[in-house]
């Protein structure tokens, strides 16, 4: 049974990896209209994520595959249950990729502006939808005794989930802004340095509301926080990380600010995981129907095989992810290969 627990942790790591990595390039997309004043600015912003955004999205693929392998019942129930929302995310992801590839291919100003709006709206939309999805997972969804969700698209859009959508947008905008402080120079850098503290305040206010609302929700996971008070260490440490990020930006220690921001996201993911554990998808109608790390998992044999795969593969994944970021470190300059 320790395998189930370990796979739960690994799964949270993969999702955390996705949110931290693709998170900043989504954030760059959201902030683009607030920062760029010229076409050159826009291209600099786009090229700050140029060599890495494709690789970052691969973490989402990994998240899908790992969920299928380790917790197939969650994979089947969650994705068929959130059908239209997930389809919207997938189609928006595609349009975002198209916008990135397409915008600089013609000189026309109207052409570029159109694709820039696609880029911004799709980046924001993905962050929002993922937040809404998380809100629904936290709050619980109706699940029948066959494991099928009995909720339609509109049923997913209740106020708590929408609030998490907004929190998701602000969190990734902040994360993207902090990433940009490492990548920009001159006037663009000054602009993003002025913007980040405002984003910190906005995110902080929204997160406070989220946490308070969460604690007063009747569902099991709020009870989990009350039953296991030590898990409060995760949100508390996340709070410290936000403060560190904010102070680092003021001190112009951009690298440290990014580490703090990434740590904050990791800690918030850990908070969610600790609150849910051992449930992965709570049933709001009948707790007996909840999908847990035990009843929704693959067999011990499969989890063992998958563990071997992960132990063999993940070190390389982390190694070359780190290598690529190291290689493309430094502030953006445009050249002939640029978008």
């Amino acid at each position: 049974m320790w395998l189930n627990q370990l796979w739960f942790v690994l799964y949270v790591v993969i999702i955390g990896g996705y949110v931290i990595l693709d998170g900043f390039d989504l954030g760059v997309g959201m902030l683009s209209p607030f920062l760029a004043r010229s076409d050159h600015d826009k291209r600099v912003l786009l090229n700050s994520i140029g060599p890495v955004w494709d690789g970052n999205e691969v973490w989402l693929v990994l998240g899908g595959g790992a969920l299928f392998a380790a917790f197939p019942f969650v994979y089947a129930s969650l994705f068929s249950g959130f059908y239209l929302a997930l389809m919207a995310v997938l189609l928006v992801l595609i349009m975002r990729a198209v916008a990135i590839e397409f915008r600089s291919k013609r000189e026309s100003a109207r052409w570029r502006t159109t694709w820039d709006w696609f880029f911004t709206i799709s980046s924001t939309g993905i962050a929002f939808l993922l937040g809404v999805a998380l809100g629904n997972v936290l709050r619980g969804v109706p699940i029948d005794d066959q494991g099928n969700l009995t909720v339609d698209f509109v049923g997913l859009l209740h106020p708590y989930a929408l609030l998490l959508g907004v929190a998701g947008v602000l969190m990734l905008a902040l994360h993207g802004g902090i990433y940009l402080t490492m990548k920009l120079s001159d006037e663009l850098l000054e602009r993003v340095e002025r913007l980040v503290p405002r984003l910190v305040v906005a995110f902080f206010v929204v997160m406070t509301v989220v946490i308070v609302w969460t604690l007063f929700l009747p569902e099991d996971f709020a009870q989990n926080f009350r039953d296991r008070p030590w898990t409060a260490i995760f949100p508390a440490a996340a709070f410290v990380a936000v403060v560190v990020a904010w102070r680092s930006i003021r001190a112009r220690a951009h690298g440290r600010a990014f580490v703090a921001s990434a740590t904050m996201i990791a800690l918030l993911m850990a908070s969610v995981a600790a609150a849910l554990y051992p449930v992965m998808l709570p049933a709001s109608n009948d707790p007996a129907n909840s999908l847990t790390i035990y009843n929704a998992a693959s067999t011990q044999e499969t989890l063992t095989v998958m563990l071997v795969v992960a132990v063999l593969g993940m070190p390389f994944v982390l190694l070359y992810t780190a290598g690529v970021y190291y290689f493309f470190r430094g502030r953006v300059q445009l050249d002939e290969d640029s978008y």
Partner: peptide, 22 residues
Amino acid sequence: GNVFGSLLAAEGIFAFMLEGGF
């Protein structure tokens, strides 16, 4: 899921990350 899912996940870890990374 027990069988097919693990092959897809292995693809993600071994192969796709290699491509995406480099």
